[in-house]
Write a protein that binds this DNA or RNA. Structure first.
Lengths: 360, 360
DNA sequence: AATAAATCTGCCAACGAAGGCACAGAGACA
DNA sequence: TGTCTCTGTGCCTTCGTTGGCAGATTTATT
């Protein structure tokens, strides 16, 4: 069942069969029809490995993330996979598991496979690996990793818009003391989130005392620990913003077991809008990092740089936005009555509230 | 940077280089060392496509699931990917998205790629596709799809053990009226879960009235709808078991908004033990389907059938087990006092309570 | 009718590595 | 010294496509 058999069956040359399959040069309708029917009759499936060898590229995209079981990733992976599928590309998934050795091993495999492009979203990548990918002419798109000097595509998450929306939302609800639970400082994404928070608070609460900041680990436990610290403060904040939803959820749990009611006693805002967020109790107000969109853009950027290797280095900004749910509410005034929210606080955020599905 | 260059650099033949790389025939230590250093000096990365073409097999595993964003899958994918990585295989991920056309497209691609093996866990697979895979000599392992007649490996989830544990747990807590929220009847896995439930109830509550059964959709909404129906009953059950966690979570939410306290007023048991389960409020008692184990076994079975194509058709049972959290408690007696639980109810389940992580 | 310009198709050399076949050289043994 | 058996390597075909080059046929042009 090789192309040769199809050619014989159709009474044409191998080249012609190849060209009708790939649409790579004109073939008359009549010949094309003969070839098609021969392909059908032979149950011919082209050998992808032979094609890749001959053409030098495989119709494959690499996807290098840290851990698919981190609830941030599945949606991203799905959208990338879907976009790739539509373009005839397959996706090979690689979890670095936060392990540098493993990561470099993956990079090697990606190169050996002549993968057409890679989407990267893991901090385990040092510059030598990136240089290696560049040297081997693998198209690369960084997802929120900050530009790395190399002329490669880069999708940049705009943390500021969403976080600013969140702060405005809180301020409109009367909050003035807003604590922040950040991620590990060494991580770029954590730094960017914090910076956006800080600037926004300065802008909207210029006269308020500077917010207290706790360093978390982007995990549930970090949120819980931070919440404990918060609870130990003399004066509690009226709202807490966490740099990601897992920590927000951790804080939520901890504050709850401490007897505080959310949002009546304290408001919580998360970041990412993972599937859990909508299912939490109460459903979490959070800033959505639109991962499906990120994935789509990633594949588009990859395709562009595969097809036009000369014009590398696209930069795209992915905006974030607030999704208001039930973990935020008006701050209670010292006289026990509720703060009267301004109109801004009631405005609906444009989040599309999808519930995660379950079915097999 | 082809093997030819390495051969010249090392002063040996192409064949020798190939053989040191693949460890496929004896090479003297001295020659081997020369080759290794030449490989190093040349920064030689073997071309995976050429290797696959020449050998007829690519070191790739296919993974065909319905939807990675379904919280059931990420852990499974991770364990498969990890096990494959350790054996030098890459994983190409395919989401069928519950779409038959897409699925058959994927099967075609899998064949074209000369993938060494595929793990299947999606119901969008008709027998003609399976036959096609068999004809093209692709090793296949079914994950909980029921034996399909074909002589292929099959990992079978043993629902009965875990569900029986759950029912014993509930009965020990004094529950006698246990409702069941099932999955879509057409799905094999849903049928198996229900059957296990039914048998267990008959065994442990022989004199009780037959439990009421609600048909759900394996999604949050299905659980909510079922809970509504339950709330409309004249006599409420004291416990609800759902065929998966998403429905259990949906029911939990609905019962909660209806003013019922879980577990004080009604107990809930889920199935799967997805990451959400431990984060719910209250944390969900559920039957764990150990997906990491399932994934490991899948890869092992695949490797076995790749290396010994003659002895196909391995069958393995994956046990399930109860994880007791806080959504189940003693039933309240009609006199208002608590039912005194038997010792069985307090026994710790052997679940390893891992929190999902978040970090990038 | 001769010629030029399109159309359409075939031939064949890559692509990079695997693996069967064969052979040189070293040591064993007579 | 001749023969036999290992050991360790090299040569060369093969894997199934792609794509450059050129050839054959048809159609437009003068």
């Amino acid at each position: 069942m090789r192309i040769k058999d199809v050619a014989r069956e159709a009474g044409v040359s191998i080249a012609t069969v190849s060209h009708v399959i790939n649409n790579t040069r004109f073939v008359s309708d009549e010949t094309r029809a003969r070839v098609m029917s021969a392909i059908e009759r032979c149950h011919y499936y082209p050998n992808a490995n032979a094609r890749s060898l001959a053409s030098g590229r495989s119709r494959t995209l690499g996807l290098l993330i840290s851990d698919i079981s981190n609830p941030f990733f599945p949606e991203l992976v799905k959208s990338i996979e879907t976009a790739a599928f539509e373009r005839g590309y397959d996706v090979v998934l690689s979890n670095t598991n936060y392990d540098a050795a493993r990561t470099s091993n993956y990079v090697r495999r990606i190169i050996e496979r002549k993968v057409a492009g890679v989407a990267l979203m893991t901090s385990e990548l040092d510059s030598s690996l990136i240089a290696e990918l560049a040297r081997r002419h693998v198209s690369v798109v960084f997802l929120d990793l900050g530009s790395t000097g190399v002329r490669m595509s880069n999708l940049c998450v705009d943390y500021a818009v969403g976080i600013d929306e969140a702060i405005r939302h809180l301020v409109a609800l009367g909050h003035k003391r807003i604590a922040f639970i950040g991620g590990p400082k060494r991580l770029r994404s954590a730094a960017k989130r914090f910076e956006a928070f800080r600037e926004s608070v300065v802008r909207h609460l210029p006269s308020a005392p500077p917010p207290t900041v706790y360093e978390g680990d982007f995990k549930l436990e970090g949120g819980q620990r931070a919440a404990c610290e918060i609870l130990a403060e003399e004066e509690l904040p009226t709202a807490v913003m966490a740099a990601n939803d897992m920590m927000a959820l951790g804080a939520l749990r901890e504050l709850h077991t401490a007897g505080l009611r959310v949002p009546e006693d304290i408001s919580i805002v998360g970041f990412d809008d993972i599937a859990f967020a909508a299912l939490a109790h109460p459903p979490l107000t959070t800033v959505c990092l639109p991962r499906a969109e990120l994935g789509r853009h990633a594949v588009e950027a990859l395709m562009a740089s595969i097809e036009h290797p000369e014009q590398q280095g696209i930069e795209i900004e992915i905006p974030t936005y607030l999704v208001v749910r039930e973990s935020t509410a008006s701050v209670r005034r010292t006289d026990g009555r509720e703060f009267k929210p301004t109109r801004d606080a009631k405005r609906e955020a444009h989040g599309d509230e999808q519930q995660p599905q379950q079915r097999r």
